[in-house]
Design a protein around this nucleic acid. Structure first.
Lengths: 172, 172
DNA sequence: GACATACTGGAACAAATGGTCTATTACTCC
DNA sequence: GGAGTAATAGACCATTTGTTCCAGTATGTC
Protein backbone atom coordinates (compact mmCIF):
# COMPACT_ATOMS: atom_id res chain seq x y z
CA UNK A 1 0.00 0.00 0.00
CA UNK A 2 2.67 2.60 0.88
CA UNK A 3 4.46 1.61 -2.31
CA UNK A 4 1.29 2.13 -4.29
CA UNK A 5 0.53 5.49 -2.71
CA UNK A 6 4.08 6.57 -3.25
CA UNK A 7 3.98 5.61 -6.91
CA UNK A 8 0.70 7.45 -7.34
CA UNK A 9 2.00 10.46 -5.41
CA UNK A 10 -1.13 10.30 -3.31
CA UNK A 11 -1.99 10.27 0.35
CA UNK A 12 -4.35 7.75 1.86
CA UNK A 13 -7.16 10.24 2.12
CA UNK A 14 -6.94 11.13 -1.55
CA UNK A 15 -6.76 7.52 -2.51
CA UNK A 16 -9.86 6.58 -0.57
CA UNK A 17 -11.51 9.68 -1.89
CA UNK A 18 -10.90 8.54 -5.44
CA UNK A 19 -11.63 4.83 -4.95
CA UNK A 20 -14.12 3.10 -2.73
CA UNK A 21 -11.58 0.50 -1.66
CA UNK A 22 -8.32 -1.06 -2.63
CA UNK A 23 -10.28 -3.75 -4.36
CA UNK A 24 -12.31 -1.26 -6.37
CA UNK A 25 -9.13 0.53 -7.36
CA UNK A 26 -7.69 -2.71 -8.59
CA UNK A 27 -10.72 -3.35 -10.78
CA UNK A 28 -10.12 0.05 -12.36
CA UNK A 29 -6.48 -0.84 -12.87
CA UNK A 30 -7.54 -3.99 -14.67
CA UNK A 31 -9.76 -2.02 -17.01
CA UNK A 32 -6.95 0.43 -17.68
CA UNK A 33 -4.61 -2.40 -18.44
CA UNK A 34 -7.06 -3.97 -20.83
CA UNK A 35 -7.46 -0.83 -22.86
CA UNK A 36 -3.72 -0.23 -22.88
CA UNK A 37 -3.09 -3.76 -24.11
CA UNK A 38 -5.89 -3.42 -26.62
CA UNK A 39 -4.21 -0.33 -27.99
CA UNK A 40 -0.74 -1.84 -28.07
CA UNK A 41 -1.85 -4.98 -29.86
CA UNK A 42 -3.97 -3.11 -32.36
CA UNK A 43 -0.98 -0.96 -33.17
CA UNK A 44 1.27 -4.02 -33.43
CA UNK A 45 -0.95 -5.34 -36.20
CA UNK A 46 -1.10 -2.10 -38.14
CA UNK A 47 0.03 -2.56 -41.70
CA UNK A 48 0.86 -6.24 -41.24
CA UNK A 49 -0.79 -8.23 -43.98
CA UNK A 50 0.77 -11.66 -43.54
CA UNK A 51 -0.66 -14.19 -41.11
CA UNK A 52 2.61 -15.59 -39.80
CA UNK A 53 4.16 -12.18 -39.44
CA UNK A 54 1.06 -10.93 -37.65
CA UNK A 55 1.21 -13.74 -35.12
CA UNK A 56 4.89 -13.06 -34.53
CA UNK A 57 4.21 -9.36 -34.02
CA UNK A 58 1.54 -10.05 -31.43
CA UNK A 59 3.75 -12.41 -29.49
CA UNK A 60 6.58 -9.90 -29.52
CA UNK A 61 4.30 -7.07 -28.48
CA UNK A 62 3.00 -9.05 -25.53
CA UNK A 63 6.47 -10.11 -24.47
CA UNK A 64 7.60 -6.50 -24.63
CA UNK A 65 4.75 -5.36 -22.42
CA UNK A 66 5.51 -8.21 -20.04
CA UNK A 67 9.15 -7.24 -19.68
CA UNK A 68 9.73 -4.78 -16.87
CA UNK A 69 11.08 -1.54 -18.33
CA UNK A 70 12.27 -0.26 -14.97
CA UNK A 71 14.26 -3.43 -14.53
CA UNK A 72 13.40 -4.04 -10.90
CA UNK A 73 13.00 -7.60 -11.99
CA UNK A 74 13.42 -8.92 -15.46
CA UNK A 75 9.81 -9.91 -15.94
CA UNK A 76 6.71 -8.21 -14.67
CA UNK A 77 4.50 -10.53 -16.69
CA UNK A 78 0.98 -9.94 -17.92
CA UNK A 79 -1.50 -8.50 -15.46
CA UNK A 80 -4.15 -10.90 -16.68
CA UNK A 81 -2.11 -13.99 -15.91
CA UNK A 82 -0.63 -12.57 -12.73
CA UNK A 83 -4.05 -11.67 -11.40
CA UNK A 84 -5.59 -14.95 -12.48
CA UNK A 85 -3.12 -17.01 -10.49
CA UNK A 86 -2.98 -14.69 -7.53
CA UNK A 87 -6.66 -14.07 -6.91
CA UNK A 88 -8.68 -15.48 -9.77
CA UNK A 89 -9.61 -18.61 -7.93
CA UNK A 90 -11.16 -16.75 -5.01
CA UNK A 91 -12.60 -13.55 -6.36
CA UNK A 92 -15.46 -13.95 -8.79
CA UNK A 93 -15.66 -10.29 -9.73
CA UNK A 94 -12.03 -10.33 -10.70
CA UNK A 95 -12.49 -13.57 -12.57
CA UNK A 96 -15.24 -12.08 -14.67
CA UNK A 97 -13.08 -9.12 -15.55
CA UNK A 98 -10.21 -11.41 -16.42
CA UNK A 99 -12.45 -13.24 -18.80
CA UNK A 100 -12.89 -10.02 -20.71
CA UNK A 101 -9.15 -9.62 -20.82
CA UNK A 102 -8.63 -13.10 -22.15
CA UNK A 103 -11.28 -12.55 -24.80
CA UNK A 104 -9.50 -9.37 -25.77
CA UNK A 105 -6.21 -11.18 -26.32
CA UNK A 106 -7.99 -13.91 -28.17
CA UNK A 107 -9.72 -11.42 -30.43
CA UNK A 108 -6.42 -9.91 -31.48
CA UNK A 109 -4.93 -13.28 -32.23
CA UNK A 110 -8.04 -14.28 -34.13
CA UNK A 111 -7.66 -11.15 -36.20
CA UNK A 112 -4.03 -11.91 -36.90
CA UNK A 113 -4.68 -15.54 -37.73
CA UNK A 114 -7.52 -14.76 -40.07
CA UNK A 115 -5.14 -12.97 -42.40
CA UNK A 116 -3.94 -14.82 -45.47
CA UNK A 117 -0.56 -16.51 -45.32
CA UNK A 118 2.30 -15.80 -47.74
CA UNK A 119 0.69 -18.10 -50.30
CA UNK A 120 -2.59 -16.24 -50.01
CA UNK A 121 -4.37 -19.03 -48.19
CA UNK A 122 -6.93 -18.28 -45.48
CA UNK A 123 -7.82 -20.53 -42.57
CA UNK A 124 -11.34 -21.67 -41.85
CA UNK A 125 -12.99 -19.89 -38.92
CA UNK A 126 -12.88 -22.95 -36.71
CA UNK A 127 -9.11 -23.17 -37.08
CA UNK A 128 -8.70 -19.46 -36.46
CA UNK A 129 -10.71 -19.70 -33.27
CA UNK A 130 -8.92 -22.78 -31.97
CA UNK A 131 -5.48 -21.45 -32.82
CA UNK A 132 -6.19 -18.07 -31.27
CA UNK A 133 -7.01 -19.80 -28.02
CA UNK A 134 -3.90 -21.92 -28.38
CA UNK A 135 -1.82 -18.80 -28.89
CA UNK A 136 -3.24 -17.06 -25.82
CA UNK A 137 -2.59 -20.10 -23.65
CA UNK A 138 0.84 -20.35 -25.22
CA UNK A 139 2.09 -16.88 -24.32
CA UNK A 140 0.55 -17.03 -20.90
CA UNK A 141 2.46 -20.24 -20.38
CA UNK A 142 5.66 -18.70 -21.65
CA UNK A 143 5.23 -15.85 -19.20
CA UNK A 144 4.81 -18.35 -16.40
CA UNK A 145 8.08 -19.94 -17.38
CA UNK A 146 9.70 -16.53 -17.60
CA UNK A 147 8.68 -15.76 -14.04
CA UNK A 148 9.90 -19.18 -13.00
CA UNK A 149 13.35 -17.99 -14.00
CA UNK A 150 13.77 -19.75 -17.31
CA UNK A 151 16.64 -18.50 -19.47
CA UNK A 152 15.92 -15.96 -22.19
CA UNK A 153 17.31 -18.35 -24.73
CA UNK A 154 14.83 -21.05 -23.83
CA UNK A 155 12.00 -18.56 -23.74
CA UNK A 156 12.89 -17.53 -27.26
CA UNK A 157 12.85 -21.18 -28.27
CA UNK A 158 9.42 -21.62 -26.69
CA UNK A 159 8.12 -18.60 -28.55
CA UNK A 160 9.55 -19.96 -31.77
CA UNK A 161 7.90 -23.33 -31.31
CA UNK A 162 4.60 -21.69 -30.49
CA UNK A 163 4.90 -19.71 -33.67
CA UNK A 164 5.64 -22.83 -35.66
CA UNK A 165 2.59 -24.58 -34.26
CA UNK A 166 0.53 -21.62 -35.38
CA UNK A 167 1.96 -21.91 -38.85
CA UNK A 168 1.32 -25.63 -38.91
CA UNK A 169 -2.32 -24.71 -38.70
CA UNK A 170 -3.54 -26.58 -41.82
CA UNK A 171 -3.43 -29.63 -39.60
CA UNK A 172 -5.92 -28.29 -37.11
CA UNK B 1 -1.29 -18.63 8.61
CA UNK B 2 -4.13 -19.73 10.91
CA UNK B 3 -5.58 -21.60 7.96
CA UNK B 4 -2.28 -23.33 7.43
CA UNK B 5 -1.83 -24.23 11.09
CA UNK B 6 -5.38 -25.46 11.24
CA UNK B 7 -4.89 -27.66 8.19
CA UNK B 8 -1.68 -29.03 9.65
CA UNK B 9 -3.30 -29.49 13.05
CA UNK B 10 -0.36 -27.69 14.57
CA UNK B 11 0.15 -24.85 16.97
CA UNK B 12 2.44 -21.96 16.23
CA UNK B 13 5.11 -23.22 18.54
CA UNK B 14 5.18 -26.63 16.92
CA UNK B 15 5.28 -25.10 13.49
CA UNK B 16 8.26 -22.90 14.29
CA UNK B 17 9.84 -25.84 16.00
CA UNK B 18 9.64 -27.86 12.81
CA UNK B 19 10.51 -25.12 10.34
CA UNK B 20 12.87 -22.20 10.64
CA UNK B 21 10.39 -19.81 9.09
CA UNK B 22 7.31 -19.67 6.96
CA UNK B 23 9.55 -19.20 3.97
CA UNK B 24 11.64 -22.26 4.80
CA UNK B 25 8.47 -24.29 5.25
CA UNK B 26 7.28 -23.21 1.85
CA UNK B 27 10.51 -24.35 0.24
CA UNK B 28 9.92 -27.75 1.79
CA UNK B 29 6.38 -27.73 0.45
CA UNK B 30 7.73 -27.04 -3.02
CA UNK B 31 10.07 -30.01 -2.79
CA UNK B 32 7.23 -32.20 -1.60
CA UNK B 33 5.09 -31.05 -4.47
CA UNK B 34 7.81 -31.78 -6.97
CA UNK B 35 8.27 -35.33 -5.82
CA UNK B 36 4.52 -35.88 -5.71
CA UNK B 37 4.15 -34.59 -9.26
CA UNK B 38 7.14 -36.63 -10.34
CA UNK B 39 5.46 -39.71 -8.99
CA UNK B 40 2.07 -38.95 -10.51
CA UNK B 41 3.49 -38.27 -13.96
CA UNK B 42 5.74 -41.30 -13.92
CA UNK B 43 2.75 -43.41 -13.07
CA UNK B 44 0.66 -41.75 -15.76
CA UNK B 45 3.16 -42.94 -18.34
CA UNK B 46 3.35 -46.49 -17.09
CA UNK B 47 2.58 -48.96 -19.81
CA UNK B 48 1.86 -46.29 -22.39
CA UNK B 49 3.81 -47.06 -25.54
CA UNK B 50 2.38 -44.59 -28.01
CA UNK B 51 3.67 -41.03 -28.29
CA UNK B 52 0.37 -39.28 -28.81
CA UNK B 53 -1.33 -41.26 -26.12
CA UNK B 54 1.52 -40.55 -23.74
CA UNK B 55 1.27 -36.81 -24.29
CA UNK B 56 -2.47 -36.94 -23.73
CA UNK B 57 -1.99 -38.92 -20.52
CA UNK B 58 0.46 -36.37 -19.15
CA UNK B 59 -1.82 -33.46 -19.92
CA UNK B 60 -4.73 -35.21 -18.28
CA UNK B 61 -2.68 -36.12 -15.23
CA UNK B 62 -1.57 -32.53 -14.75
CA UNK B 63 -5.07 -31.19 -15.21
CA UNK B 64 -6.33 -33.69 -12.66
CA UNK B 65 -3.74 -32.60 -10.12
CA UNK B 66 -4.60 -28.97 -10.84
CA UNK B 67 -8.29 -29.48 -10.19
CA UNK B 68 -9.20 -28.93 -6.58
CA UNK B 69 -10.55 -32.16 -5.14
CA UNK B 70 -12.10 -30.46 -2.13
CA UNK B 71 -14.00 -28.18 -4.44
CA UNK B 72 -13.40 -24.97 -2.53
CA UNK B 73 -12.79 -23.50 -5.93
CA UNK B 74 -12.85 -25.31 -9.20
CA UNK B 75 -9.16 -24.91 -9.93
CA UNK B 76 -6.28 -24.90 -7.56
CA UNK B 77 -3.79 -24.87 -10.41
CA UNK B 78 -0.21 -26.05 -10.43
CA UNK B 79 1.98 -24.98 -7.54
CA UNK B 80 4.83 -24.26 -9.91
CA UNK B 81 2.86 -21.79 -11.97
CA UNK B 82 1.05 -20.33 -8.98
CA UNK B 83 4.30 -19.73 -7.15
CA UNK B 84 6.07 -18.39 -10.21
CA UNK B 85 3.51 -15.66 -10.74
CA UNK B 86 3.01 -14.87 -7.09
CA UNK B 87 6.59 -14.64 -5.89
CA UNK B 88 8.93 -15.85 -8.62
CA UNK B 89 9.83 -12.39 -9.76
CA UNK B 90 11.04 -11.29 -6.33
CA UNK B 91 12.45 -14.32 -4.61
CA UNK B 92 15.52 -15.81 -6.20
CA UNK B 93 15.65 -18.87 -3.96
CA UNK B 94 12.12 -19.74 -4.95
CA UNK B 95 12.88 -19.06 -8.59
CA UNK B 96 15.75 -21.53 -8.53
CA UNK B 97 13.55 -24.17 -7.01
CA UNK B 98 10.86 -23.49 -9.59
CA UNK B 99 13.39 -24.06 -12.30
CA UNK B 100 13.86 -27.57 -11.01
CA UNK B 101 10.11 -28.06 -11.12
CA UNK B 102 9.87 -26.86 -14.68
CA UNK B 103 12.70 -29.14 -15.70
CA UNK B 104 10.91 -32.01 -14.04
CA UNK B 105 7.76 -31.39 -16.07
CA UNK B 106 9.81 -31.00 -19.18
CA UNK B 107 11.64 -34.26 -18.55
CA UNK B 108 8.38 -36.16 -18.36
CA UNK B 109 7.11 -34.63 -21.56
CA UNK B 110 10.41 -35.33 -23.26
CA UNK B 111 10.10 -38.94 -22.21
CA UNK B 112 6.57 -39.13 -23.56
CA UNK B 113 7.44 -37.42 -26.80
CA UNK B 114 10.44 -39.59 -27.46
CA UNK B 115 8.20 -42.62 -27.78
CA UNK B 116 7.36 -43.85 -31.25
CA UNK B 117 4.05 -42.79 -32.74
CA UNK B 118 1.41 -45.23 -34.01
CA UNK B 119 3.33 -45.62 -37.24
CA UNK B 120 6.49 -46.47 -35.35
CA UNK B 121 8.21 -43.22 -36.16
CA UNK B 122 10.48 -41.53 -33.64
CA UNK B 123 11.20 -37.81 -33.44
CA UNK B 124 14.71 -36.37 -33.54
CA UNK B 125 16.00 -35.19 -30.16
CA UNK B 126 15.82 -31.54 -31.11
CA UNK B 127 12.10 -31.83 -31.86
CA UNK B 128 11.49 -33.75 -28.64
CA UNK B 129 13.21 -31.07 -26.64
CA UNK B 130 11.44 -28.18 -28.33
CA UNK B 131 8.04 -29.82 -28.15
CA UNK B 132 8.46 -30.78 -24.51
CA UNK B 133 9.07 -27.14 -23.69
CA UNK B 134 6.09 -26.19 -25.81
CA UNK B 135 3.94 -28.68 -23.93
CA UNK B 136 5.01 -27.38 -20.54
CA UNK B 137 4.29 -23.80 -21.55
CA UNK B 138 1.03 -24.97 -23.05
CA UNK B 139 -0.44 -26.58 -19.93
CA UNK B 140 0.79 -23.79 -17.70
CA UNK B 141 -1.02 -21.42 -20.03
CA UNK B 142 -4.16 -23.50 -19.93
CA UNK B 143 -4.07 -23.43 -16.15
CA UNK B 144 -3.79 -19.66 -16.25
CA UNK B 145 -6.89 -19.54 -18.40
CA UNK B 146 -8.62 -21.96 -16.07
CA UNK B 147 -7.98 -19.67 -13.12
CA UNK B 148 -9.12 -16.75 -15.19
CA UNK B 149 -12.52 -18.42 -15.23
CA UNK B 150 -12.58 -19.85 -18.72
CA UNK B 151 -15.29 -22.42 -19.39
CA UNK B 152 -14.44 -26.11 -19.10
CA UNK B 153 -15.49 -26.57 -22.67
CA UNK B 154 -12.98 -24.05 -23.95
CA UNK B 155 -10.28 -25.45 -21.74
CA UNK B 156 -10.90 -28.85 -23.25
CA UNK B 157 -10.60 -27.29 -26.68
CA UNK B 158 -7.32 -25.66 -25.73
CA UNK B 159 -5.98 -28.96 -24.48
CA UNK B 160 -7.08 -30.62 -27.69
CA UNK B 161 -5.33 -28.03 -29.83
CA UNK B 162 -2.18 -28.32 -27.76
CA UNK B 163 -2.28 -32.06 -28.28
CA UNK B 164 -2.73 -31.59 -32.01
CA UNK B 165 0.25 -29.27 -32.19
CA UNK B 166 2.28 -31.94 -30.43
CA UNK B 167 1.17 -34.49 -33.01
CA UNK B 168 1.98 -32.12 -35.84
CA UNK B 169 5.55 -32.40 -34.67
CA UNK B 170 7.10 -33.51 -37.98
CA UNK B 171 6.88 -29.87 -38.92
CA UNK B 172 9.12 -28.73 -36.09
C1' DG C 1 8.88 -43.39 40.11
C1' DA C 2 12.53 -39.80 38.98
C1' DC C 3 14.56 -37.09 35.62
C1' DA C 4 15.91 -35.10 31.39
C1' DT C 5 14.18 -34.08 26.94
C1' DA C 6 11.03 -32.94 23.62
C1' DC C 7 6.71 -31.11 22.38
C1' DT C 8 2.70 -27.90 22.65
C1' DG C 9 -0.95 -24.19 23.85
C1' DG C 10 -1.35 -19.76 24.32
C1' DA C 11 0.10 -15.19 25.71
C1' DA C 12 2.85 -11.55 23.99
C1' DC C 13 5.43 -8.98 20.42
C1' DA C 14 6.50 -5.60 16.77
C1' DA C 15 5.41 -4.49 12.31
C1' DA C 16 2.29 -4.02 8.62
C1' DT C 17 -2.40 -4.19 6.68
C1' DG C 18 -6.70 -1.83 4.94
C1' DG C 19 -9.43 1.80 6.30
C1' DT C 20 -11.47 6.15 8.89
C1' DC C 21 -11.52 10.74 10.82
C1' DT C 22 -10.33 15.38 11.46
C1' DA C 23 -8.10 19.57 10.84
C1' DT C 24 -6.15 22.12 7.44
C1' DT C 25 -5.02 23.52 2.94
C1' DA C 26 -6.15 24.63 -1.96
C1' DC C 27 -9.37 25.91 -5.35
C1' DT C 28 -13.45 28.01 -7.49
C1' DC C 29 -16.91 31.15 -8.33
C1' DC C 30 -19.11 35.34 -7.35
C1' DG D 1 -11.25 39.18 -1.43
C1' DG D 2 -14.36 36.11 0.85
C1' DA D 3 -17.67 32.11 1.12
C1' DG D 4 -18.22 27.43 0.03
C1' DT D 5 -16.54 23.27 -1.72
C1' DA D 6 -13.15 19.91 -2.70
C1' DA D 7 -8.73 17.81 -1.84
C1' DT D 8 -5.18 16.51 1.24
C1' DA D 9 -1.82 15.30 5.10
C1' DG D 10 -1.36 12.91 8.87
C1' DA D 11 -2.94 11.01 13.27
C1' DC D 12 -5.59 7.18 14.57
C1' DC D 13 -7.91 2.52 14.63
C1' DA D 14 -8.73 -2.43 14.55
C1' DT D 15 -6.98 -6.45 12.57
C1' DT D 16 -3.66 -9.45 10.85
C1' DT D 17 1.02 -10.68 9.88
C1' DG D 18 5.22 -13.54 11.14
C1' DT D 19 7.64 -14.67 15.11
C1' DT D 20 9.17 -15.50 20.03
C1' DC D 21 8.67 -16.83 24.76
C1' DC D 22 7.27 -19.18 28.65
C1' DA D 23 5.09 -22.30 31.32
C1' DG D 24 3.13 -26.59 31.26
C1' DT D 25 2.58 -31.32 29.58
C1' DA D 26 3.90 -35.60 27.22
C1' DT D 27 7.43 -38.75 26.24
C1' DG D 28 10.92 -41.69 26.85
C1' DT D 29 15.05 -43.69 29.86
C1' DC D 30 16.91 -45.69 33.63
Amino acid sequence: MPELLDAMGLGKASFYNAFASKHAAFLTVLDCYFSAVDHVLARALEGVKNRDEAAACLLDAILTVARDPEGRTVWRGCLIGNTALEMGARDETVRNRLNQGVRLLRRHFAKALSLADSDGRVLPDSAVSALALHAVAGIQGILVLAKAGMLEEELRAAKQTLLLTLKASPLI
